[in-house]
Design a protein around this nucleic acid. Structure first.
Lengths: 224, 224
DNA sequence: GCAAAAGTGTTTGAGGTACACCCATGC
DNA sequence: GCATGGGTGTACCTCAAACACTTTTGC
């Protein structure tokens, strides 16, 4: 009981929805809460914003703690602030969402988490707080922005096939894209370039590999 | 010095960018700050979020206090939280933007404001805090969403001419629209319906009046 | 009668959509 | 040789963009 103010202050947290593709499906990283409230429940990774830390940096820190990720797509979603969303005290949460290639994720349960793992979006458990709502909104935002192939690019490993990018875009937008039209469209941009390598996998023709042509963070400047 | 916490809490405010059209130009409502910091400077209307009040409700309250508006388009923009944005203490601001028909605005300087008035966007004073940045982002968002005619509709009085709507859309998007294509497009939707009335103004042909066909708030559900 | 905004259709081009078959590999 | 995903081109259609003149009023 050390910090005192003339009028009541809410606590401020950030929560981050980390999306990736695992086993060909969209998935999100959840942590199992170690402490009350909602101990044992799954939740978005997040935590309190430190007093001298920007919102974006707090989100970045949470992302880093749970995944080891140090860079990538991280964008503010919205602030969530219903007075009753946390039973302890008034807590306002600024939600972020991140897109991360699966290969770059090294999932670790940080100190405040009993466990951490990926869940397919089709297969979510009941979440703590209003995190189901936050996640639904993040998914919505992703769908809105997903027509832009830059978004799907964020989920690609350092080299990838056009089929993988195609699949990512379908997952994000939640609808099928014609294969030929998709490839035509992507190749018409300067989003990707062939590495010259091919990947052999399974009993079929090897796929040409591509890499992102521009720095990963060019198309979307950070928000805040 | 009455409210104490185990760890430091930021203060949380809402700021609202209220856009309207005045004299055929996009304008935003600013208040002149009565108190320090930035006393005498122009700023977005805003204030602290009360401890039991939702963010949206706080924004709505600020809007109402400065304009008398009780309903209309009000949407969350983003949270701004750089640690140094307020010289007093750590303050995180959740910014909203509102679109309001000029006729419904009754501007009043609320208790914390020395003055309040509309400024054309082309003609802004230097603003307090990071409000210039917030306003720039609100403007950007408006431009992004402005292709959708629902947005321009929010700036229309209860009855309006297609020329007025046309002008509003041009202002929001910052580029010209072909008159015939615009009218064709609007009339192809069920966004507006003729009132049957005409408005005589100036020495030219009277314009047919239209009204919004759906409830004003249908197309955009509130965010949070 | 003239100034000033309201109102009205058609043509053209670009881009998105639909669609089916051969290719290279592993087993 | 067959199963599996990789890779390729064309025709059509829809929608957005360009474009100019007549109408109705006030003065």
């Amino acid at each position: 009981m050390r910090y005192t103010y003339d009028y009541p202050h809410p606590a401020v947290t950030v929560d981050v929805a980390v999306f990736t593709i695992e086993d060909g499906e969209l998935a999100v990283l959840l942590i199992r809460r170690a402490a009350e409230p909602f101990a044992g429940r799954w939740a978005l990774p997040g935590g309190f914003v430190e007093i001298r830390e920007s919102l974006r940096r707090a989100a970045w820190r949470e992302l880093h703690e749970e995944t080891g990720i140090r860079a990538g797509f991280l964008e503010q979603l919205a602030a969530f602030g219903r007075p009753d969303r946390d039973p302890r005290e008034r807590v306002i949460s600024v939600a972020y969402y991140a897109l991360v290639p699966r290969e770059r994720l090294s999932i670790r349960a940080a100190s405040d988490a009993a466990d951490a793992r990926l869940f397919r979006l089709a297969d979510l458990p009941e979440l703590a707080f209003d995190h189901t709502k936050i996640l639904r909104r993040a998914r919505e935002r992703l769908r809105e922005k997903g027509d832009d192939a830059h978004i799907a690019m964020q989920l690609m490993a350092s080299s990838f096939t056009l089929s993988e990018l195609h699949r990512a875009q379908e997952l994000i937008c939640g609808r099928p894209f014609d294969k030929r039209n998709f490839r035509k469209r992507i190749l018409a941009t300067d989003l990707v370039e062939p590495t010259g390598e091919k990947r052999r996998a399974g009993q079929h023709r090897p796929a040409a590999l591509y890499r992102a042509r521009h720095a990963r963070d060019v198309p979307y400047r950070s928000r805040i």
